[in-house]
Design a protein around this nucleic acid. Structure first.
Length: 341
DNA sequence: TCTGGGGTCCTAGGACCC
DNA sequence: TCTGGGGTCCTAGGACCC
């Protein structure tokens, strides 16, 4: 069986763990906008993405904390240490969630393992972790969603048989607004609607990979394989800013992003990995993104060289001649595959 | 109806080689 | 010299995730 373990309101829970005054109270982790509300804040109607100003106006008593990235990374490391003690087959989904394969482990029934894992995470890391148990990754993930907050849900074979055909397609992991729009337009709403469709026909509506995945979900043969994480493929840094077209400001923010990204590449474990290419992204005040990519003169971690290339790519976005204001700039450093040498 | 700051994966098309 | 077929690699652009 597959477990999906997911820390509840991760950022807010770390803050509440570290500051007793925040416990049991509506609070948010925010910087201009809400990144993570505590469950007490969610009960009021506060959600991620809400402007902080609005929160302060409507709920003056809600407590606000800033970000502490180091604390979140440490908490994440602690959680994964606990996970890996239960099984080496751990597939990270993000800093706060993972799939675990506990089949064939001599540790009792999966529900018992899941309960023990929740207890261990609470005792050792101090965080509430919800766990879903299912035959496939999809089932485990849906189960953990329903287990929140701080709960455990097991989807056994019988429940799966009843639930699977009725799943809404937009609930499925990997189906976003675009794909859902296409499926909906074709009259497909729940998994059972896929009955009788061939991959060929479905691939005329969505991509072939998506068609294949959807049909495997309908057939109950969807993914139950844990994939162990490989080396990181890219490192990026970005910063949003008030709408501007002032070149010096934008270039300064870009330089800062280059510095942060390079710093993080240097900090990666293992042999050094030198980026040979660079991507620069600009977001305008209407939400549109523009990207420019190009090679570095040679693979390097030299901030001067990377910064110069970044500035050139920034020029190539032609932001200065665009009427719109720039609200975000960022860089991505694609990393070469780490070669066993 | 989407903040901000991260990431991954898939697909199409072109270059290049045999 | 031209045509056709095949494979691989790289890049650009999206969609989606937390």
């Amino acid at each position: 069986m597959i477990l999906h373990a997911d820390a509840d309101a991760f950022l807010a829970s770390v803050e509440q763990r570290d500051d007793p005054r925040l416990r049991g109270r509506p609070m948010v982790v925010a910087h201009e906008v809400v990144a993570c509300p505590s469950y007490e804040a969610r009960a009021l109607g506060i959600h991620a993405g809400m402007p902080l100003r609005q929160v302060r106006r409507r709920w003056p008593d809600v407590l606000v904390t800033g970000y502490r990235p180091e604390a979140y990374e440490a908490a994440s490391a602690g959680l994964f240490e606990v996970f890996r003690r239960f099984t080496p087959l751990v597939e990270p989904g993000s800093i706060e969630e993972a799939f675990l394969d506990v089949a064939g482990r001599d540790r009792g029934d999966p529900a018992g393992v899941a309960a023990a894992l929740r207890t261990a995470a609470r005792a050792e890391v101090g965080l509430p972790v919800s766990v879903g148990v299912g035959r496939t990754k999809l089932m485990a993930k849906l189960a953990s969603r329903r287990a929140k907050p701080d709960g455990l849900v097991v989807v056994d074979a019988e429940l799966e048989t009843r639930v699977r055909p009725r799943l809404r397609l937009d609930e499925l992991w990997g189906v976003g607004p675009t794909t859902w729009g296409r499926l909906h337009a074709a009259g497909l709403h729940v998994v059972a609607d896929l009955h009788g469709w061939s991959e060929e026909d479905l691939a005329r509506i969505v991509t072939t990979a998506m068609a294949r995945r959807l049909l495997s979900i309908a057939a109950g043969t969807d993914d139950a394989t844990i994939r162990l994480p490989g080396p990181r493929q890219s490192v990026s840094a970005s910063r949003s800013l008030p709408p501007t077209r002032t070149r010096s400001k934008i270039e300064a923010v870009l330089e800062e992003c280059v510095g942060r990204a390079l710093h993080r590449v240097v900090a990666l474990e293992g042999p050094p990995r030198l980026p040979g290419r660079l991507e620069v992204v600009v977001r305008y005040d209407d939400g549109a993104h523009v990207q420019q990519r190009g090679p570095l003169p040679s693979p390097t971690l030299d901030p001067e060289v990377v910064g110069a290339t970044a500035t050139q790519l920034l020029e190539q976005t032609a932001y200065e001649w665009d009427g719109r204001g720039v609200t975000m700039v960022g860089v991505t450093l694609p990393l070469p595959r780490a070669e066993p040498s």
